[in-house]
């Protein structure tokens, strides 16, 4: 299987605090890969690093075989690094932490922003129509300000918006955060559906380890900036360490 994303020993710091201390992982094309970890483990930092929002202090990131981000030997981000908006055009799309919807724009405008890089109006309209079919509630709410949606609806909008550019790799940052259990189930069903129907690889970052591992092929466990475990998801689910620390059993 070809690797769509390869992260090689990356370091990211905020001031003197090292948030990622040499993280390596890879994501195979067509799979759902999950990264689980507690609050403050560095999960969101990792996703921000992949899309170029946090500069690397060390290591490199390859997407579809091409090196998109790296750091120089002296611990500075390379000058050749791509900007986030350029990385996005390569086919990486992210539904950010805390949903990150544009609250003062309508649902429709949010979706249009997701398709900012597409110039073909007909194609944009077709994509919007597809997303409305996937999330009928968004069609009903299309003229409302996104800020007026409920948490679950905002999460759906965030995912739908991330899919508007027809990405090859979708990064999801804690889609279950702050949602009611029944809605969480709904969101994860949608993630599985997207993976099957949209021909997109999914890299999922979650605190809800049980949910994330139950829908993914492969899993990584991140603890204070380091990968401490990696395995097939079903094996992680029965791993005693994971059970004790993340599944509350």
């Amino acid at each position: 299987m070809t690797k769509i994303l390869e992260i090689n020993n990356i370091h990211v710091s905020y001031g003197n605090i090292e948030a990622l201390k040499g993280v390596s992982l890879s994501v195979n094309e067509g799979e759902i890969v999950s990264l689980i970890g507690a609050n403050g483990a560095g999960k969101s930092t990792l996703l921000k690093a992949i899309v170029g929002l946090e500069p690397l202090k060390g290591g490199s990131i390859k997407y579809a075989g091409e090196e998109i981000l790296s750091a120089t030997g002296s611990g500075k981000a390379s000058k050749k690094n791509l900007r986030p908006d350029v990385i996005m055009t390569k086919g990486i799309s992210m539904a950010p932490e805390g949903r990150g919807i544009f609250a003062e724009m309508t649902v429709l405008e949010n979706l249009e922003m997701g398709a900012f890089i597409i110039r073909d109006k007909n194609l944009i309209n077709r994509n919007i129509e597809e997303k409305y079919e996937m999330f009928p509630i968004l069609r009903d709410r299309r003229k409302q300000l996104a800020g007026s949606l409920s948490g679950g609806e905002q999460q759906m909008l965030s995912i739908a918006r991330a899919l508007m550019s027809k990405p090859k790799l979708l990064l999801l940052d804690e889609p279950a955060l702050g949602l009611a259990p029944i809605i969480i189930q709904n969101i994860f069903d949608i993630v599985v559906k997207i993976s099957k129907e949209e021909n997109v690889t999914i890299f999922l970052v979650e605190q809800n380890a049980k949910m994330a591992l139950s829908i993914s092929n492969k899993g990584y466990v991140l603890e204070t900036g380091k990968i401490i475990l990696e395995n097939d998801s079903d094996k992680l689910l029965s791993d005693p360490k994971v059970k004790a620390a993340y599944l509350g059993e």
Partner: peptide
């Protein structure tokens, strides 16, 4: 399109960049 991108950028620069907006 650019006007909307302007509003998006004013709300959240990082997320606007994630949309492919320079």
């Amino acid at each position: 399109r650019l006007g909307k991108a302007m509003r998006a950028t004013s709300e959240n620069q990082a997320v606007a960049a994630l949309m492919g907006i320079n």
